[in-house]
């Protein structure tokens, strides 16, 4: 077990190194330089550009730039090119904004998709299953931004509550109840939107796993023992069907960063996704690279956690 952990940590660190190299190369080999973002701007005189290049080591060869960049990153000295703020500081603030969105979305996804998927599998081919199936296809297929607009129109015209941003402007002096309600409304829509795709995909997956397991011989054995249906489904089948989801549980970590670019920009939610989008627009390389690095760390941590969980959960794996 210990040797497995050691090996896997070393492996993950090597992977992380390559990720950092590749992302650095992608950004720097691509045509265009940050100093050329706005060549018509009169403030960008050749001298300013030159000073800028020197300050951020852009005149050095690539590998030196690479070392400078990651040295700064690990010592926490990386600053955004756009506003000279510390990148880590910026990411942390935005992360705190994204967190409630992520938590509500994840909780919604995992609490809704399991009951739906299991019921679909048990009532396979019946009306419940077929409507759940069709609904989940619909949710998988609907473009997120279009769905967002439909929902916004619906909520705004029917409930007359504003939903854009994290809170309604100028609610500082009103009662706590009102503020809480306001926050909830603002939080609800984007997190529901973020969760829909996940619910659809995950419930389909739960269903197919349950069906797969339901056809196994040991389910027949359990029924031959005279167990009631519920115990067959929820003990023998579910316990086996759950194994692959342990892997997925580790993989929700990276969702903290990746998934929400479109939703956050529609709802003007000042979270990580929106920051990444803005950084890409401004070619703010340190921010892009740092976001990328952080998300790679999250992915690797997620897979690591799921590996460990899998070993604990499946008696067939022994190290």
């Amino acid at each position: 077990m210990l040797s497995f952990i050691g090996r896997s940590v070393v492996q993950k660190i090597i992977t992380l190194f390559f990720v950092s190299v590749v992302s650095f190369l992608i950004i720097h080999i691509a045509p265009g330089e940050p100093s050329q973002v706005d060549p018509m701007n009169p403030k960008f005189t050749p001298e300013v550009v030159e000073r800028f290049r020197e300050e951020f080591h852009l005149d050095k060869p690539l590998h030196v730039q690479y070392i400078y960049f990651y040295q700064n990153l690990f010592t926490g000295k990386t600053v955004s090119w756009k506003d000279n703020q510390s990148v880590l500081q910026k990411i942390w603030e935005r992360f705190l904004n994204s967190l409630p969105l992520f938590i509500v979305g994840t909780v919604l996804t995992w609490t809704l998709s399991f009951p739906v998927g299991i019921r679909s599998a048990i009532y396979r081919g019946r009306l419940y299953d077929r409507s759940a199936t069709f609904l989940s296809y619909l949710l998988i297929s609907i473009p997120g931004f279009f769905f967002a607009y439909v929902l916004i129109i619906f909520v705004v015209t029917h409930f007359h509550v504003p939903v854009i941003g994290m809170e309604t402007f100028g609610t500082g002096n009103t009662s706590t109840v009102f503020v809480v309600m306001d926050r909830t409304w603002h939080l609800l829509l984007p997190s529901v939107l973020g969760a829909t795709g996940g619910i659809a995909v995950l419930s389909r997956y739960v269903r197919s796993q349950m069906l797969e397991v339901g056809g196994q011989d040991y389910i027949r054995t359990a029924r031959a023992k005279g167990l009631p249906q519920e115990q067959v489904h929820y003990k023998h089948a579910l316990r086996n069907a759950l194994l692959p989801f342990i892997t997925m549980f580790g993989l929700i970590l990276p969702g903290l960063i990746g998934g929400s670019v479109i939703i956050e920009s529609i709802f003007s939610w000042p979270g990580m996704g929106r920051m990444a989008y803005e950084a890409i627009l401004a070619r703010d390389y340190p921010v892009i690279l740092t976001v990328n690095f952080v998300s790679a760390v999250l992915v690797l941590a997620g897979t690591f956690i799921s590996d460990i969980l899998y070993i604990i959960a499946d008696p067939r794996i022994r190290l």
Binding site: L16, V19, I27, I257, I280, R283, N292, V299, L300
Partner: peptide, 20 residues
């Protein structure tokens, strides 16, 4: 594994934004 470390939509966005 290395490729999977990049958040896909973010990666696509970055590259598309940098390329013409």
């Amino acid at each position: 594994d290395i490729m999977l470390c990049f958040p896909s939509f973010f990666l696509i966005l970055t590259v598309v934004a940098l390329l013409p």
